[in-house]
Design a protein around this nucleic acid. Structure first.
Length: 575
DNA sequence: GCCGTTTTCGGCCCGACTGTTTTCAGTCG
């Protein structure tokens, strides 16, 4: 993530909301929304760009480019200030309430002078909305319900949480007679780090049995909508699940549509329009005759649009359409490409499982190699000593090759101290096959010191992988403040890989940081940081995140044969 | 406001559901 880009994204999104609330200029609002997304996801820092540079970003034209420049020059944008003066901030807050959009928010403000969520709740209770056109008893209920939801949950859940729920529901629905296909789509299929709601698609001739089944699952807490084509529920845990049922011959078009992203679909539909076609969840049709030309599989739909099958994890309108049209779509890394895990723990430090058991479980996964990297002494609570790690090394050597010929690497997870120093001196580090190094404390040393700290760690000839590089915890702790361009460049220069940590609450680096790091020529390691056997399976979340960062097997050191990996791990050290 | 192999104007993805209407607007994804 690039902070200035996020600021601009928020600003443009706010302006789009304000335009939508004041009404009339729907396409203008949409243009600002699109530009906000484009800048938020742009890998380079936009605060360094001039108008010409900004206009290179798709969706950003002269007018928006000038506003961005004005923002970085003066700290504000005049037209945004003007809109803010007309619409109190609380009115914009209203549209975050589910079922309440810009039109209703404006009606509430104009007719009843409501400008905060609290005032709205009071007005509903005082029955003041009754006389408003377009508002009825049910609308009142929905508003109060929406406010309650907003206050308790506040939004998105981890990918892993959604995955477990989705796989359960898919298994249930797949058992129903007449089910030809059933799968999850949406942001979960795209493997976004957090998920707003779960989208499930079924292919069947009759929809009712599936719609009914969803509303009757034990995990279903509340039914939001129950129709012939679509049913929405909220689970007892508060996760919204949308189910759509399509005819079996529309399965591909349905999956294409419900996988998204919205931005990606806008692009595919626009391409369809240019070809004289119309794309919907029911298929690809000739506009003139209405004749269906593709729908059965995603392959077929994309092919008819002149595109290869685009992996779901790339469907974000971040260049995948253009790459596809040019035939230059990357062969993204898959779980099958991973030959070994390079960051794992045992019960010698804070893992839950013994070395023997972890190694046996890793071998079961079919790995060619596997690294054990317990914590080093400076993470004091783990009580590591020189003797303990030497004893572990002996144990690792004795198990090497004992399971299906899987090779073992003995490593450690070092702590990167406030100055970038690590736990052991060079001569001791020389005894390890590889070293992961990570920040575990002193998160607030300041941007400059944090940057220097990470660069210094990269320059250590024994540090091979920077573990969970931003140390973020999703929903709990933001990433560290450092000049990531400088850090990633240092990784590329020194032959230090960046980790894609697969722990579901980390996913660190995240997709956007991966894109940035890749542009610097850095290499990556997709690791689970497993502290138990089940956590070895977190790998898929790391692989999904790596795919979202457009990584190919060549970018990822733990897809390489052991010989090539060992050469990389030597960095530029003599011998 | 953005964009361009229908190119400087006139388009802009498209459909489902709900609630309030009595044929449709608003919201959502």
């Amino acid at each position: 993530m690039v902070r200035p880009n996020e600021e601009v994204e928020a600003l443009l999104q706010e302006y789009a909301d304000l335009i939508a609330i004041t009404g009339g200029e729907a396409f203008k609002a949409r243009a600002y929304e699109k530009a906000a997304r484009a800048i938020g996801g742009y890998p380079a820092d936009v605060s360094h760009l001039d108008v010409a540079g900004l206009k290179e970003i798709p969706g950003v034209g002269k007018s928006i480019a000038e506003k961005v420049v004005e923002y970085f020059h003066t700290g504000h944008v005049t037209v945004v200030e003007e809109r803010r003066a007309r619409i109190p901030a609380g009115v914009r807050q209203l549209i975050t309430i589910p079922t309440l959009g810009p039109r209703k928010a404006m009606a509430l403000y104009q007719d009843l002078h409501i400008s905060s969520v609290g005032e709205l709740a009071d007005a509903v209770k005082a029955e003041k909305l009754r006389d408003l056109k377009g508002f009825g008893r049910k609308t009142e209920e929905n508003i109060l319900h929406g406010i309650a939801l907003m206050q308790q949950a506040g939004g998105r859940i981890l990918m892993s949480t959604a995955m477990e729920a989705a796989e359960d529901i898919v298994a249930e629905l797949s058992r129903i007679t007449g089910c030809e296909h059933c799968a999850y789509g949406g942001s979960l299929r795209r493997m976004k780090e957090t998920i707003g709601d779960i989208d499930i698609l079924v292919a069947a001739r009759r929809s009712a049995p599936f719609m009914d089944a969803l509303t009757e699952l034990p995990s279903t807490g509340e039914v939001i909508a129950h129709g012939e084509k679509k049913t929405s529920i909220r689970t007892v845990k508060g996760v919204q699940v949308d189910l759509r049922v399509v005819r079996p011959d529309a399965w591909g078009a349905g999956m294409q549509y419900f996988t998204g992203s919205q931005a990606h679909n806008i692009r595919t539909r626009t391409i369809a329009v240019r070809l004289g076609l119309k794309l919907s969840e029911y298929g690809l049709f000739e506009t003139e005759s209405g004749k269906r030309v593709a729908s059965r599989s995603e392959d077929e739909v994309y092919a008819r649009l002149g595109l290869p099958l685009i992996p779901p994890t790339l469907r974000e309108d971040r260049g995948e359409i253009e790459a596809g049209l040019r035939g230059e779509l990357p062969e993204v890394v898959t779980e099958r490409d991973i030959r070994g895990d390079l960051h794992t723990h045992t019960d010698l430090t804070d893992g839950l499982t013994s070395l023997e058991e972890m190694v046996a479980a890793a071998a079961e996964r079919g790995y060619a190699y596997y690294a054990v990297t317990d914590h080093a002494p400076n993470l004091y609570m783990q009580r590591m000593t020189d003797d303990k790690i030497r004893a572990q090394r002996e144990q690792v050597r004795s198990l090497d090759g004992e399971h299906h010929g899987m090779r073992l690497l003995h490593g450690t997870e070092l702590n990167i101290g406030p100055e970038g120093e690590v736990d052991w001196p060079d001569e001791f580090l020389r005894g390890f096959d590889l070293c992961v190094a990570a920040v575990h404390s002193h998160f607030n040393v300041g941007r400059k010191a944090m940057t220097h700290r990470l660069v210094h760690a990269c320059e250590n000839p024994h540090v091979n992988i920077i573990g969970h590089p931003t140390t973020r915890l999703l929903g709990k702790r933001p990433g560290i403040d450092a000049d990531l361009d400088e850090v990633f460049a240092a990784c590329a220069r020194t032959g230090t890989a960046l980790e894609v940590n697969a722990q579901p609450d980390r996913l660190d680096l995240g997709d956007e940081d991966i894109l940035l790091a890749r542009s610097h020529g850095a290499k990556f390691a997709i690791d689970t940081d497993a502290h138990s056997i089940p956590q070895l399976a977190f790998l898929r979340y790391g692989v999904g995140t790596a795919q979202r960062g457009w990584l190919t097997p060549d970018d990822v050191i733990n897809t390489w044969p052991l010989r090539r990996l060992r050469r990389f791990l030597r960095k530029d050290r003599a011998g």
